[in-house]
């Protein structure tokens, strides 16, 4: 079966963000960007399914600016066979991304779509579920295990308080949680080879999808800073402070 993997270009996991002085947004000028960590897990899972012989082809797709091709090349270096770049400079919301991906699903007819459960910039956690709803396919979100078996897949999900396993008919949409796998690093020869793999560039208009946002960003602020307190010298002092000063014991 063919697997479609969606990836997103986001701020690097380790970068501390700054809010713009005019509070219009977060300042991403000259900030290191990378593939969203949950998307790395999605790519890894797709590649592993191919290595196991479950998948025959892995197609990576992204929606974003020209520079997002870097993340597609990373996906290709990690083992994806080809890539689709839906290029736009707009701030594309989850719903519009899901609509675009639904069109790609229609074109490509994958047996499974794997996405990260959330992107670490907007922290929305919506796209996979929206894609499932729009395509009429079942969803296995927050997956920590994916076991495909014939025309079904069992997905073990990280839920509040534990784990839940569900069985889905294929094709299905899967979103990844942290413990699904540990992504590999791309090797230099694979990075070189990735440059020659096919990468199609499309626009939202090619799919007839309107990407203008429905939600306006009124302002962005830094959260209230928490002031550091005091260092205590001993366990006795700590307990005394918690009892008599903070009054939480």
């Amino acid at each position: 079966m063919k697997i479609l993997v969606a990836v997103k270009r986001v701020i690097d996991y380790n970068v501390k963000i700054r809010v713009k002085a005019d509070h219009s947004d977060v300042d991403l000028t000259n900030v290191k960007m990378a593939m969203n960590p949950f998307c790395e897990i999605a790519v890894e899972e797709a590649v592993r399914l191919k290595e196991k012989g479950v998948a025959t082809e892995v197609v990576a797709v992204t929606v974003g600016p020209k520079a997002a091709q870097e993340q597609l090349r990373t996906a290709l270096a990690l083992g994806a066979d080809r890539a689709i770049h839906i290029e736009t400079d707009e701030r594309v919301e989850s719903l519009a991304v899901a609509k675009l991906l639904a069109k790609v699903v229609e074109d490509e007819q994958p047996g499974m779509v794997i996405l990260g459960k959330q992107a670490i910039d907007t922290d929305n956690n919506q796209t996979g579920q929206m894609l499932a709803a729009l395509t009429g396919l079942p969803q296995g979100t927050f997956a920590s295990e994916v076991a495909a078996d014939g025309d079904k897949v069992n997905v073990t999900r990280e839920i509040d308080g534990g784990l839940q396993t569900i069985a889905l008919t294929l094709p299905a949409i899967v979103t990844t949680d942290l413990r699904l796998n540990e992504p590999r690093y791309a090797k230099l020869p694979d990075i070189m080879k990735a440059k020659k793999k096919p990468l199609d560039v499309k626009s939202p208009a090619d799919y007839g999808v309107e990407v203008a946002s429905r939600v306006s960003l009124v302002k962005v602020e830094s959260p209230a800073e928490r002031k550091g307190g005091v260092k205590v010298a001993s366990v006795d002092e700590l307990i005394d402070k918690l009892k008599n000063e903070a009054k939480v014991l």
Binding site: N125, Q129, A133, L134, T141, S213, R214
Partner: peptide, 19 residues
């Protein structure tokens, strides 16, 4: 919660609204 996150985006998408 993991239930709210799992279910609500489906409603939003099917009603063609953002979440």
């Amino acid at each position: 919660s993991t239930t709210g996150k799992n279910v609500l985006p489906r409603l939003a998408a099917l009603k063609d609204v953002s979440q």
